[in-house]
């Protein structure tokens, strides 16, 4: 999960002190050729995905298979978007990923701020708990999380003991809640807030600002770069999430795009070109978000206000 943040840092440092590639010895040329080969192999599935998404139904079954499509068969994309519930799935995915992202930004930054900067009894215990929960594997928890979401009291026809109804299953709340705050997000924001100079906060405190005002007006604006990273990571992980929506929803109209893609592919009349069009549509936003974050997340705004 920290890979993006690391990637950004690496980009900056490597640019500063990368060693040069001066002489062109045969070994280097072979090495470079291998690198190019590896890059092509890595891109191959993507290239096939895109090329297939533009092929006609006949082209898919032609032998030998051509890599470059004859033309751009946009109809595949139209079919993908017209697939049953596709629009609904897009909305569901946006609500799920958006809700998860916003709640992570809000809750993780609040908790991270409290852990980094506030004095309160039990602070060390709470921090130890967060670090400990970093290690709990989410996938091993699918059974109890399902039951907990099902047994939320007073929801989905449940009584106060949480039985009788379906709880928050098949609701947006139920999907978002298990990932609405993550130990990773809290940890990351805490680390960030710890690095912001204490004086900003002290100055605001002397001016009579409350904890919440300090947080909202002073620290949160300073945290923009970290919030951007956390936002991109949260969005990416929720957008790509498969297991939670699979388990926590059973009605077709609550399915996300990832479930939709799986349904599209496993259906009896699956057409590879339409499936690939759908896969392309789903993959693109995350890659764009990543490329955007890679360029914009680097921001040294914090240092400029302190010292000359």
């Amino acid at each position: 999960m920290t890979a993006l943040a690391q990637h950004v840092a690496i980009e900056r440092r490597a640019a500063a002190r990368a060693r040069s590639f001066r002489s062109y010895s045969p070994a280097k040329i072979v090495g470079y050729a291998l690198l190019v080969f590896a890059a092509i192999m890595t891109m191959m599935p993507f290239l096939w995905m895109v090329s297939t998404s533009f092929k006609t139904d006949q082209e898919i079954f032609r032998f030998p298979l051509s890599f470059v499509p004859d033309g751009f068969e946009w109809q595949n994309y139209r079919d993908a978007l017209n697939a049953p519930d596709a629009g609904r799935q897009l909305i569901n995915s946006l609500i799920y990923a958006g809700g998860s992202t916003i709640s992570n930004l809000v809750f993780c930054s609040m908790a991270g701020y409290a852990l980094a900067r506030m004095q309160f009894a039990g602070r060390n215990i709470v921090f130890a708990l967060v670090v400990g929960l970093l290690m709990v594997p989410a996938q091993s928890q699918i059974v109890p999380v399902y039951l907990i979401v099902q047994k939320i009291p007073f929801a989905g026809g449940n009584d106060w003991l949480g039985s009788g109804g379906t709880g928050l299953l098949n609701t947006y709340w139920g999907m978002i809640l298990p990932t609405a705050a993550t130990p990773f997000g809290i940890f990351m924001m805490r680390q960030f807030f710890t690095r912001i100079p204490m004086e900003y906060e002290e100055s605001a405190r002397l001016d009579g600002a409350s904890s919440f005002t300090i947080f909202r007006r002073v620290l949160l604006p300073l945290a923009k770069p970290s919030l951007a990273v956390l936002g991109v990571l949260s969005f990416q992980s929720a957008w790509n999430e498969f297991v939670w929506p699979l388990i926590l929803t059973s009605q077709r109209d609550m399915a996300t795009l990832q479930l939709g893609l799986q349904l599209l592919q496993s259906g009896p009349d699956a057409r590879w070109n339409v499936v690939m069009a759908m896969a392309t549509l789903i993959t693109t936003p995350v890659i764009l978000a990543y490329l955007f974050a890679q360029r914009h997340v680097v921001d040294g705004a914090v240092s400029s206000g302190v010292k000359g």
Partner: peptide
């Protein structure tokens, strides 16, 4: 009384100017 209720103002060594304002 905690800070902020004492009618004191402080100029910090680092100035602590809010960079986003």
């Amino acid at each position: 009384r905690p800070a902020g209720t004492r009618s004191v103002a402080m100029v910090f060594q680092s100035y602590a100017l809010y960079p986003h304002m």
